[in-house]
Simulated assay, not measured.
Amino acid sequence: MKLGLQLGYWGTGPVADHGQLVAAAEAAGFDGVFTAEAWGSDAYTPLAWWGSQTQRVRLGTSVLQLSARTPTACAMAALTLDHLSGGRHVVGLGVSGPQVVEGWYGQPFPKPLARTREYVDIMRKVWARQAPVTNDGPHYPLPLTGAGTTGLGKPLKPITHPRRADIPIFLGAEGPKNIALTAEIADGWLPIFYTPRLADMYNEWLDEGFARPGARRSRADFEICATAQIVITDDRAASMSAIKPFIALYMGGMGSEDTNFHAEVYRRMGYADVVDEVTSLFRSNRKDEAAAIIPDAVVDDAAIVGDVDYVRGKIREWEAAGVTTMLVTAKSVAEISELADIVLAV
């Protein structure tokens, strides 16, 4: 089992101690450092900033939002960071949701799977640098022609030669079709609410992708980097209560009331009634009540909360289910050292 430090995205402002946490993670043997973005801070700038102070850890995004950049712009950013880091970059991509894509980026959301396939294909053409990049697909046509254009666009190859022609791409996927697509075209999967209890279900979806003609990977060399909230404590009740507002936000407040991909993940876990009640309370601005009604079992499904022996046993379960890396958050250097001592020793 490997560990990745998830720095996430900023709230109201920068996080002052991220430099210390990154240094501690590298010193403790973490495999990677990951950043994210929503509709505030971007993922690439802090990753490059803090990554410049490291020598060994992989530098990943979990996740970049597909609609924030054209595929060629994303490929440019990736090849640049890959050069600067000595070949340590991992591109993590996700489609986000219609509220963000259309409300923040001003881009159409429909056909997310087709857009993802096209996006990834263009990025790989850029890095391969075998020919000027063209794309006949409907979502990202290159060169762009037709009404409203000059007709002067021409296919181009990147001026800069990529350090690697095959930078790893991981996808943040939640639904069965998206997970199957991930196994087919990507190098790894970034599940946000993973539970070993449903490993057989995930594996069925992944195996569908692995079996498709031209699939890039097999289960033997495919990575599953699962976000894992790990809290080492003797007071499970208090720690679980602290996690529930976060779950309530994602379960009841992300996306629209009838289009929330995170909520669908919890429905597939078997918590449809909880999702409905949390959503109703959260959207009535009764957020504390929404968090309070979440059963402990919901937290237990996708987080690890308990004493050292309990945590070690759960990590074995996650590893046995196929997880190769656990992406964890930490609030202090001491917490990073403690996580390394426990997880990396299992």
Rank of each mutant, 00 (worst) to 15 (best):
S67Y: 01
D258C: 03
V33Q: 13
T325L: 06
I315D: 04
R197Y: 02
I232G: 04
K125Y: 05
T35W: 08
A147S: 07
D309W: 09
A77S: 11
G106H: 00
N135Y: 04
A302S: 15
A114K: 07
I230D: 01
D258L: 03
E204I: 12
P108S: 11
A43D: 06
P143E: 03
V346T: 07
A48F: 07
N285Y: 14
D341V: 05
L84T: 12
V311Y: 02
R316A: 14
I230M: 03
H18F: 15
G40D: 14
G106L: 01
H262E: 00
T259L: 12
P46W: 06
G87L: 11
T233E: 02
T329H: 07
F210A: 13
Y9L: 09
V63Y: 07
A211F: 10
A199E: 04
R236N: 05
G94A: 08
L156G: 04
G151W: 05
A320V: 01
T227E: 08
A75M: 07
A24E: 15
T329W: 07
Q229V: 13
G253Q: 04
G94I: 11
D300R: 10
D166N: 15
T80V: 12
A226I: 04
S62M: 15
R124V: 11
L198M: 06
A36M: 14
T149W: 05
A220C: 08
